[in-house]
Design a binder for these strands. Structure first.
Lengths: 110, 110
DNA sequence: TTGACTTGAAACCAAAAGGTGTTATATTAT
DNA sequence: ATAATATAACACCTTTTGGTTTCAAGTCAA
């Protein structure tokens, strides 16, 4: 309670297909809101709301440039999802998860 | 439209912390609804609803045994999440994703 | 058969999600 | 200065979510 509980975490942020598509778009190129909007059948206002959710989850960030606000991807929070997933990998891909474990421990030597 | 659009996909299913905790519980042991409920501060009915969402996403399945309904984990749908994530791995862990690529292609030789 | 236990299903509720449209403000080009 | 553009901020609406309580029905043990 000392810090306002963040309303949207990364799991909620990626739950919506539109937001996942926004992330994919921004993974190719940063772009202003208006350009993002052209890729979707909904209003620009709706896209702005999705961008707010993504911003809260720290998956995107926007800077103002002239009269445009240009958004770009911040992929880091997805690591939390990957970590959560890694626990379940053992159920379907033993070989891969063991190898991953080895590699990740190697990284510590850097 | 030929097939009723499934209301809850795996991304939505894992968006809720309670449901993620249910998955973790079931990853240790299958168990009846009543036992699952004891781990949460909410009513049994609320848990049943979460189990319905998880069932729709094919992340769990329940069989009836006497008067109990015993649920167990079905981890397969999480692969979809992992596949989605793998696209973004390149942004934070190049070495790992390259290695993964190699391993996955090796698998094809089996 | 009675009683305890577990689930299932319904009705209800408040709040959040996901949209809409309107209006206001800042920026740029003419 | 004016007009066009891009975003921001609201107010509003409908559906979904996440919870509750209540009641009915199936199962088991005594």
């Amino acid at each position: 309670m000392s810090q306002a509980a963040q309303k949207h975490d990364v799991f909620q942020a990626i739950a919506d297909p539109t937001r996942r598509e926004v992330l994919r778009l921004l993974s190719e190129n940063e772009m202003p809101i208006s350009k993002i909007s052209t890729h979707f059948p909904m209003s620009r206002t709706a896209i702005v709301k999705h961008l707010h959710v993504l911003t809260e989850a720290k998956l995107v960030s926007g800077r103002k440039e002239g009269r445009e606000k240009i958004y770009h991807l911040l992929p880091e929070p997805l690591e939390e999802v990957q970590q959560w997933l890694s626990y379940y990998e053992k159920f379907w891909s033993n070989k891969l998860s063991i190898l991953k474990y080895v590699v990740e421990n190697e990284e510590e030597d850097k």
